[in-house]
Design a protein around this nucleic acid. Sequence first.
RNA 1: CGGGGCGUGGCGCAGCCCGGUAGCGCGCCUGCUUUGGGAGCAGGAGGUCGCCGGUUCGAAUCCGGCCGCCCCGACCA
Length: 486
Amino acid sequence: MADDKRLTPRSESFSAWYNDVVQRAELADYSPVRGCMVIRPWGYAIWELMQQGLDGLFKETGHENAYFPLLIPMSFIEREKEHVEGFKPELAVVSHAGGRELDEPYVVRPTSETIIYSMYAKWVQSYRDLPLLLNQWCNVMRWELRTRLFLRTSEFLWQEGHTAHATREEAEEEARRMLGVYRQFQEDWIAMPPVSGLKSESEKFAGAVRSYSVEALMQDNRALQAGTSHFLGQNFSRQFGLTFQSEEGREEHAWNTSWGVSTRMVGGMVMTHGDDNGIVVPPRIAPAQVVIVPIWRTDAQRVLVLEEADRFRDQLVAAGVRVRIDARDHLNPGAKFYEWERKGAPFRAEIGPRDVAKGQVVLARRVPFSSSERKRFLSREEALATLPALLDAFHEDLLEGARARREANSHRGISDLGELKEILDAGGGLVYTGWSGDPDVEERVKQATRATIRVIPDDEFASSSRPSRCIGGGAAKMEVAWARAY
RNA sequence: CGGGGCGUGGCGCAGCCCGGUAGCGCGCCUGCUUUGGGAGCAGGAGGUCGCCGGUUCGAAUCCGGCCGCCCCGACCA
């Protein structure tokens, strides 16, 4: 039946579409463990490319990778008051090991501030040991009530950067710098342009002095917190005795930051670029940027076509393009076209007997070049010479499309609560209003609209005229962006 | 945790109301023919009907309990 092959259209149910497409694109599957997912090879390869891109940026900004234990003594988590309050409900605890009950239970890390800063305390003596700039790639566990593949699972993969600095200014700068790295990465690799800014008090990380985030607007106009960066002040260094001797010989507490992005970005990619035919993987994170589909009738043609496909692949690989040949014999070409569209490969190159004869390839882009140009016929030399540029151009088109969608769904200068609610109920995305900074107002608006303050936007995203009225009445002290969020 | 829905070959479903020992599509296997947008024909494999108990000569179907999953709301990267 045709219906077996179709995905639930986005217009029918965006969340059903998401669940469908994540599984049918073979990104991930549900696991026997409640709330946990299995990331399948295609999805994992995308994550690996994200990791590579980010890891490069971390290294460029002076960070090194390390690894800390999965299990954290319960007493560590409990040391920072705000921190434990924030995480208590979602901790998974190991109480038994080696066949007996442990004297002190361990928690499966929900995040690693405590164990990492306890080690930093051991390693840092002098201002000369600072800054200490480490990152770790790992899994974490937060017991979630309601889970969704990639967007919220009990176990997820992420990176967490943890830094220690001699001065407050330097740590604050680091937190801002890494927020910028996330933004840059999401634009340059995922073609997902977020809005960056400061979190409100109620939305900040448990244990932080200040939290920043990048918020991306999905196709259903809900916001996705796609990365966070925290200025931790001296909260953890005080609890873990992370001190150093300053140049002047005084003992001082170090200043910390932490920052992380997770496999949630894969979900963000899906909901930013996907369409009713499947996901769209932006070129720089596509495990196969070009999929060659060979076409043949006879055995002789098969040999000839596959030979040409191999040669073309080798040439593309030499040009730095990630290529895959789909030589499966039990599927006809049409079936392969649909499959790779579902899985979001940026380009498909068809090579059949006619193309071999003419020395050409037929190139199709996952999102067509234009409505009138669904396929491009290129000589092999041309294809080879232009593909790297075509990949870049596709990235730019995706980024521009996503940015245009974000802007089209951003509503500025809203000062009336009724209007805010109206916009949100009509499916509006990011709504910019004034705010006094009063948490009671924030809570009241949240109750009334089911939206939250996503960020106090950075200057670049702020409205050209600063709002004077607070959404809850009275004078505004700042501008905030509201949205319903994942 | 509240509301809704669903558990039947790998996937999607029908059968349940009205009990009689399981069927359809897709997928899978074998063979032949095919292959430029989801191939055709022929043959074949595959199911303790979520679990436990009850009613009955007999339960996928009726009754009770339990478990699990999905969706919508309260908390969260």
